[in-house]
Amino acid sequence: KKKIKIYIENENGEKKTIEIEVEGDIDEIAKELAKKYNVKIVKIEP
């Protein structure tokens, strides 16, 4: 498992940072999160 930080922006332009532990393809997981929460991924840090 890797701990990563995902910087997101919602439709109101509010920026947030999510810190999660992931296993597998980080890009795939980030895309799923973006779709699920309707946010834009700004940056992903390993």
Rank of each mutant, 00 (worst) to 15 (best):
G13K: 03
V22I: 12
G13T: 01
I8D: 00
E28L: 14
E23W: 14
A30R: 05
G24F: 02
A34H: 04
E23F: 11
G13S: 03
K1A: 10
G24D: 04
I41R: 00
K31A: 14
E19S: 08
I20R: 01
T17I: 14
I29R: 04
Y37Q: 03
I18T: 00
I6E: 00
E28P: 05
I18V: 06
V39C: 09
I29G: 01
E28F: 08
K31P: 01
D27H: 09
V39P: 00
D27G: 10
V42F: 05
A34S: 10
K16Q: 12
E14R: 05
N12Y: 14
I20H: 01
P46C: 10
I18P: 00
D25A: 05
K16G: 14
I29T: 06
I26V: 12
G13R: 02
I26P: 07
E45D: 03
T17A: 05
K15Q: 15
P46R: 05
Y7E: 05
K35F: 08
E21Q: 06
E19H: 08
K40A: 05
K3L: 12
E23G: 07
K16R: 14
K15Y: 14
K5Y: 08
I44A: 01
K35T: 07
K1R: 12
E19Q: 08
A34N: 02
E23D: 13
L33Y: 15
Y7M: 09
Y7K: 02
I29F: 15
E23T: 11
T17W: 14
K40Q: 09
G24M: 03
I8R: 00
E21W: 15
L33W: 14
K43S: 12
E28W: 09
V39A: 14
I6R: 00
K35G: 07
I20K: 01
E19Y: 12
V39M: 11
K43R: 12
K1P: 11
K36A: 06
E23A: 11
E23I: 12
P46D: 14
E19K: 02
E21N: 07
I26R: 02
I4A: 07
N38M: 04
E9P: 00
P46F: 15
K35A: 09
I26N: 03
I6Y: 04
I6W: 03
D27E: 12
K31F: 09
E19W: 09
K5G: 00
Y37N: 03
I26E: 05
K40L: 10
A30I: 15
L33K: 00
V22L: 10
K5M: 08
D25V: 06
K40H: 11
E9F: 06
E9G: 02
N10V: 07
N12W: 14
K16I: 13
I8L: 13
K31D: 10
E28A: 12
E21D: 08
N38A: 08
E19D: 08
G13V: 00
K2I: 14
N38C: 05
E28Q: 14
E21G: 02
K3M: 13
E14K: 06
I41M: 02
I6H: 00
P46Y: 15
A30D: 01
I26G: 05
K5L: 13
I18D: 01
E11H: 12
E28I: 09
A34L: 04
K3Y: 14
I6M: 06
V39L: 08
V42G: 03
N10P: 01
E14H: 07
L33E: 01
D25W: 06
E28D: 11
E9M: 09
N38G: 13
K15D: 05
I29A: 13
E23K: 07
Y37P: 02
I4R: 01
K1I: 13
V39F: 15
P46A: 12
K16T: 14
K40G: 04
E9A: 05
K3H: 12
I41P: 01
D25P: 07
N10W: 14
I44D: 01
V42D: 06
G13F: 02
P46T: 14
I20S: 01
K2T: 11
K35N: 06
K1L: 11
K43N: 06
I4K: 01
E11A: 13
A30G: 04
K2G: 08
K35I: 12
Y7D: 03
K16H: 15
D25F: 04
K36H: 07
K1E: 04
E21R: 03
K2H: 12
K31V: 08
A30S: 05
K3S: 09
T17G: 03
E14N: 07
I26S: 05
E45Y: 06
D27Y: 14
E21L: 09
T17N: 04
K3E: 02
V22Q: 05
I29M: 10
D25Y: 02
K35W: 08
E11N: 10
I20T: 03
N10K: 13
V22M: 10
N38E: 05
I29N: 02
I29V: 10
D25E: 07
D27W: 12
I4N: 01
Y37L: 14
N12D: 11
T17R: 04
Y7L: 09
